[in-house]
Design a protein around this nucleic acid. Structure first.
Lengths: 195, 195
DNA sequence: TATATGAGTGAATAATCACTCACATATAAA
DNA sequence: TTTATATGTGAGTGATTATTCACTCATATA
């Protein structure tokens, strides 16, 4: 895994373009959004987009990969400071939920783009799945976690989290996800701990 | 001049059109797929599509809602025959995994369309979430399941299942999902049972 | 001061797209 | 047989689209 070269230089219109694009992509889908709309919403000329990206698809791809990588690196940092699998998973849950609440538009985009962009995800970029699998692998070795198929355990951990974000996205749950972090953690922990 | 075309078992071209559309939608997204492509893949004229649907979006919507409803009704039927929450969940898990394996293209489409179509999902149609919530509600009442937030429990149950289908979709897991039904069930059950 | 460069503009363009329609054919009803 | 209805065809159309490009502007460097 490697850190990413930061493309934005603060002075440019790039952040404006990305914010506008994320909102529109969430609402209308990527191919359903026109470059004209992005430019309008960003208060920018259409051509500005092409100073930073080859085209619309590269913009969509960039937003996804950069932010998922950034989020995963952050996750990894939070997790590394903890010693036990229990604490690692606890902080993974709380960080994930808090991240969603902190930037709903961005994380909504990451959720709905997963299936579209994941097959082109760069090998040297970091993905939350990497963090999760590592925790589980190590936890099973130390005996903290029950021996079971890695992907089954990983699916329970990641799947529960993602689904809870999704039902918040749909409006089924309407209050801050952080209110539920203990309950979600407890459920996940009961599923995969060793006893 | 007109070629003699082999007659299919079905009376209309609708099944051909839907099958072709599902495959293309999975590969390129809905707005990324053209009506011309659908017609070509189905071996049909472009106009045939408009004999059955108002347009491309209605076709996409129809495939999603009809099949998700059908699947949910089937789930509900399987579940109703069981008495305990444990057996209900067990059969829900196995039926879901088997359904995915039976028609991967269709269920892949249902998975990736969820975020796009769910907000327009008809109220009188059935959704897997309905089945899941009912099981959990009843199970908590009888004391079989641990008292916890319904949506937390629902997310663990549905999220684990969906994520496992997703990693099969991505090719991370490559063998029949039914091989894992016991392990997945056990994990989910440990998370939500009362003890 | 002169010059080089990166960033932004928006009208113009070439390509693509969803959808239409006049006509053909098959099936069922009258 | 005649009539009606549903289904299928595919070239044609108007609208939309992503992308380009010649030009401007601001800033930094020599």
């Amino acid at each position: 895994m490697q850190l990413v070269i930061e493309k934005s230089k603060e002075k440019t219109l790039l952040p404006k373009i990305m914010k506008a694009a994320i909102k529109l992509f969430n609402k209308k889908g990527i191919t359903g959004t026109t470059t004209k709309e992005i430019a309008e919403k960003a208060g920018v000329a259409e051509g500005a987009l092409y100073r930073h990206f080859k085209g619309k698809d590269e913009l969509a791809w960039y937003i996804f990969t950069e932010n998922l990588n950034k989020f995963s690196i952050n996750l990894q940092n939070c997790v590394e400071h903890k010693k036990t699998a229990k604490d690692k998973i606890k902080v993974l849950v709380s960080t994930s939920l808090a991240s969603y609440e902190k930037d709903k538009e961005l994380f909504t985009y990451l959720l709905i783009s997963e299936h579209r962009e994941l097959n082109k995800f760069p090998e040297n970029y970091m993905h939350p799945g990497h963090v999760v699998l590592k925790i589980i692998e190590e936890g099973q070795k130390t005996g903290e976690l029950k021996k079971m198929n890695l992907y089954v355990a990983g699916s329970i951990l990641m799947g529960s989290l993602i689904r809870f974000c999704a039902i918040r996205m749909y409006g089924t749950v309407n209050d801050d996800l952080c209110n539920y972090e203990d309950e979600i953690f407890t459920g996940i922990w009961r599923a995969i701990k060793n006893d």
